[in-house]
Design a protein around this nucleic acid. Sequence first.
RNA 1: UCCAGCGUAGCUCAGGUGGUAGAGCAGGUGCCUGUUAAGCACCGGGUCGCAGGUUCGAGUCCUGCCGCUGGAGCCA
Length: 435
Amino acid sequence: METKEVIYTNTEEIRKRGKKFENKTVSIRGWVWNKRSSGKIRFLIVRDGKGFIQCVIDNPLLYDIFDECTQESTCEVQGILKEDKRSPIGFEILTSNIKLIHKTINYPITPKEHGIDFLLDHRHLWIRSRKQFAILRIRHSVKNFIREYLNKEGFIEFDSPIFTPSACEGTTTLFEVDYFGDKMYLSQSGQLYQEAGALAFEKVYCFGPTFRAEKSKTRRHLIEFWMVEPEVAFATLDDIIQIAENMIFYVIQKVLESNSYELSILERNLDDLRKIVPPFYRITYTEAVELLKSKGFDFNFGDDFGATEETAISESFDKPVVITHYPKSIKPFYMKIDPENPNFVLNMDILAPEGYGEIVGGSQREDNYEILLQRMKEENIPLEEYNWYLDLRKYGSAVHSGFGLGIERFVAWICKLDHVREAIPFPRMLYRYKP
RNA sequence: UCCAGCGUAGCUCAGGUGGUAGAGCAGGUGCCUGUUAAGCACCGGGUCGCAGGUUCGAGUCCUGCCGCUGGAGCCA
């Protein structure tokens, strides 16, 4: 139908390099996001998976097809790309032709307010909306830049298994799976296997889903969530803190660079993100307890921090804060005892600012066979399941450290979301797992 | 699991002290040449979560159940 040259493109290309298509005929394929009209001039807002663009229709020959283009109908639009200051992306399409590919009737999610119950039931469609589009594209970037950073630093991706014969951390509950008649569990951490990897490849990480069968029901918890877990041979607690700080810094810089469109959709305050420059604040558990007491908290030395305490601590800082040297009694067996005070361990938690809580947990690992064996006995760990783990201290043991970073909490913080459920395509929560 | 709140049109909600239901949006029909969740007029749309109870009469009061949301504990 069109005889002149048509440039087949998409809104990401137009947003980034639209100048070179200006006043030329372009074609995009996508779905009707919304439409408006004002008499003889009509507006079709099309999303193509890469972004959103407004298509202007002033040709009466196109009115009928415009009327057919209901919300979320699939369509192809051709027209001349025009620069326009009124457009959020700087360009719009002066439409010359519309092809309706599939007509949608009664799309459930209207461009008005909806409750969270309704939206979660329609998650498969909700992901098409602007805010979810922005969040999930940033999630992709975050995962991509984490890998990019670690790979550049000489790590290899070394996958931990999802099926595990026993718990990595004794305290939390596990999902039990029937494994051809044997009992197996879904992994709640890949760390122990990463320790084996670190002594084989020096710098390794795993990146995958983890599962916690805890009846948590808060804005910070998912039953299935993603975690990146780097583990490094010859690294001390200090070394691993620096790796975590630099990784977080790198990812935020890269997201600021490459996701400004998505951050603007989310109306994220960029200055708050630009402030996140290493080194972060660093305090010990003991200092954190003093801070809480100075804020009027009635806190028992030796207890773990709860959600309110974490929030109170992180609100005292405008950058993430690293809390180190927790009491041995509230931390798992594999953490190395502080040689300067055996009541504490060489661990660290990183709390994000703006009340987002713990996004990183890590430690230097116990590398001495006798001490590790002793601690496992104290905590009634079934030794026969962990012979392979103890072997790591028998054959070529080395100082080593690692940490885990929760992807959804990190994404929720970067996007300033009020719940982690929007930071993953299909959240798995207590009593809610459809679609 | 515990504590708190909510359940009324496709969606978001309003319905003082009990008297057989209402708005906005969405859908439909018109009007408007620069709209940004556009606007204006008109039209259709209901097992008031479910089951009992009190009452002449229950969306409203009582009891039980179901569902959802937020928070706590645990954690990333």
